[in-house]
Amino acid sequence: MNITIGKPYAVSEKGGRLNNEDSIYPLPETITSGQKLFLVCDGVGGAEKGEIASYLACESFQTYLSAFQDGDTTEDLVKKALQYTEARFDDYIALHPAAKGMATTLTMLYTGTKGVVIAHVGDSRIYQFREGVIVYQTEDHSLVNSLFKLGKISKDEVKTHPQRNVILRAIQGADHPTEADVIVLDDVQAGDYFFMCTDGVLEHYTDELLAAVFAKYHDPEEIKDAIMDTCYGRTRDNFSFYIIPVNNVQESQSVKQNILSFLYSFI
C-alpha cells in the first residue's frame, strides 16, 4: 500500500496556561512531502517539568525510530521505542532531581506500506474521518473512560466529572513502565483525514462537533482555521493538533497480483 498525504497542518498553543506543556513532531516549518511519522504529546498537568516530558518523548521516539526502523513501524518497534524513551526520562531525572514525577501522554502516527500505524498512551487522541464521519478513534486511558465502560457514569457525566483529567497511563520512566496501544489501520482511502490532538482541543469539541467540522470543510487549512477559531482565547489548557489529509492510496503490485491470481483461479 502506497499512501500519499497532502500538506499537513499543525497547531501548538499554550491556551490559558502560562507555558505550553504540549509538544509535536515534526514542527510545522520542517515538514517535507515525504513525512511519514507524526507525534503529539501532552505533558501531564500538575507534574514537574511537563514541557520537558513531552519534548523528550517526541525527541526520543523519533530518534529511536529513525535509527532502528527497517520498513514499517511494528508493535515490537513501538515497544522498544517506548522503553528507550523511559530510559531517557531516567537519565534526565538523574541529572535534574527536581523533574522527578514528570510525565506525558503520547500519540504516534506512521504511514506505512500495510496501512497507517497508530500508537497512543494516555488521553491524547487520534481520529480517522471519512466524509465527516468518524471511522476510527483511539480509546482514552483515563479514569472517567474506565468508569464509563463499567457503567458507573454516563457519557454526559464524563465531560463534567471532577476527576476527568486523571489518566491511567503515561510515560514517566523505567520505574513506572507503561504500554502503548498499537494498531494498523488498513482501511484507508483517498479523502480521509487523520486528526491527532491533546485534550485541550476537547474542552470545546465533542466527537459530534469535531465530525461536523470535518463534514463542513473540505480543505485542511479551513479545518485548522475553524478549530483555531473555537479554541484560541477560550481554552484553559494548552491545545495542540495535527491534521493529516490522505490524497491517494494505491495497493502494492504484489497485492494486486495476488487478487488477480485469486480471481483467475475461478475462470
Rank of each mutant, 00 (worst) to 15 (best):
N2T: 10
N2S: 09
G16E: 06
I31E: 00
G34I: 12
K36Q: 08
L37R: 09
L39N: 03
D42A: 13
V44G: 04
G45H: 09
E48M: 15
E48V: 11
E48P: 08
E48D: 10
K49P: 00
G50L: 15
A57L: 09
C58T: 09
C58S: 11
S60Q: 08
F61N: 04
Y64M: 12
D70I: 15
T73S: 07
T74C: 13
L77P: 00
V78D: 01
E86A: 14
R88H: 08
D90H: 10
D90Q: 10
A94K: 15
A98M: 13
K100H: 07
G101V: 10
A103T: 02
A103R: 03
L106F: 02
M108D: 01
Y110E: 04
T113Q: 14
K114A: 08
V116G: 02
G122W: 03
G122C: 10
S124P: 00
I126R: 04
G132W: 06
T138A: 12
T138I: 06
E139G: 05
S142G: 09
S146D: 08
F148L: 15
T160C: 06
H161D: 02
I167P: 01
R169N: 05
R169V: 02
A170D: 02
I171T: 05
H176V: 12
V182H: 03
I183T: 07
L185F: 06
L185P: 00
D187P: 01
D192Y: 03
Y193T: 00
D199M: 05
V201C: 05
L210Y: 03
L210K: 05
A211H: 04
F214H: 03
F214M: 08
Y217F: 15
P220L: 07
E221I: 13
E222D: 12
E222S: 15
I223F: 07
I227C: 09
I227P: 02
D229E: 14
D237H: 12
N238P: 06
S240L: 11
Y242D: 00
I243R: 02
I244T: 01
N248D: 12
N248E: 09
E251T: 06
S261P: 01
Y264M: 13
S265I: 02
